[in-house]
Amino acid sequence: MNFEIISPTTTDELLVAIEKCQNRHFRFGAGCTDLLMELKKNPADDLTVINLAQVVDDRLTNLTKTSKLYRLGSMFTAGRIVVNDELKTHFPVLHESAHNLASTQIRQVATVGGNLCTASPSGDIACALVALGARCEMLNTNGKSRSVAVTDFFTGPRKTVLKSNEVLYGISVPLNNKETAKIYSRFIKIGTRRSMECSVVSLACHIQTDAKGVILAAGVAIGASAPTIRLAKDACSSLIGKTFKKITRKEKEEFAATVLSYASPITDIRATAWYRKEVLFNISKSIFE
């Protein structure tokens, strides 16, 4: 493994570094847990790594709140999500996804931005962010930013809409509905080992109900079931207006079947497509229990 490294210390320096690398083969390094694994397996010639870890910029590393949303800098780590009480209260699914990512050691360095930009169909934090309806904010070398919904951020396995002169700057998560009295949250990860990267299937859901238990908003995302993490949109909208505790068995099954229609799983060494579908159907049903 060999590469050159540039370690900008400000966002301006970062943008200059990106500009300078436009005609070179370069990669960003955040927590580097995915990047180093990849480069150890497939060393690249003439690679430059732009090291994000030394950039001092609150917008890149911290959590902020506005009247509409929480914004996490892309360098916010899984470990910091886990110990954040506010995030745990408002977005338990995000907390769970970070808590179940890899191991204590990896969580100290693994970043939200890295989890998204790696664009793995089984990315755990990414799956929770899809269920939460988050948006990705990208910054380009001219200092201009644009944002897209996380669901539109992924274009295929390991592929995103990021252009070569852009970096993922932050992720914003909309605040919960004002009338929300209770949140039903699930993060289900089925795999061979708890702390393994590749889940066989995963499901993240964030369902908000009012004081009477009526569903106001629902986000259900599935991982490792299609080339990208998917938001089961129709399944989500089918829940609006229903009383969470009174969903019938038939409705649960219809819901699970709708979730399943978003899956196009493959057969690989971990599981067959048939098995993945069965599991996904069953865990989808189980979220109401």
Partner: peptide, 12 residues
């Protein structure tokens, strides 16, 4: 904080 030194860049 505990980290895996095999996946941590020395420069950091």
């Amino acid at each position: 904080a505990p980290v895996n030194s095999c996946l941590y860049l020395a420069i950091n």
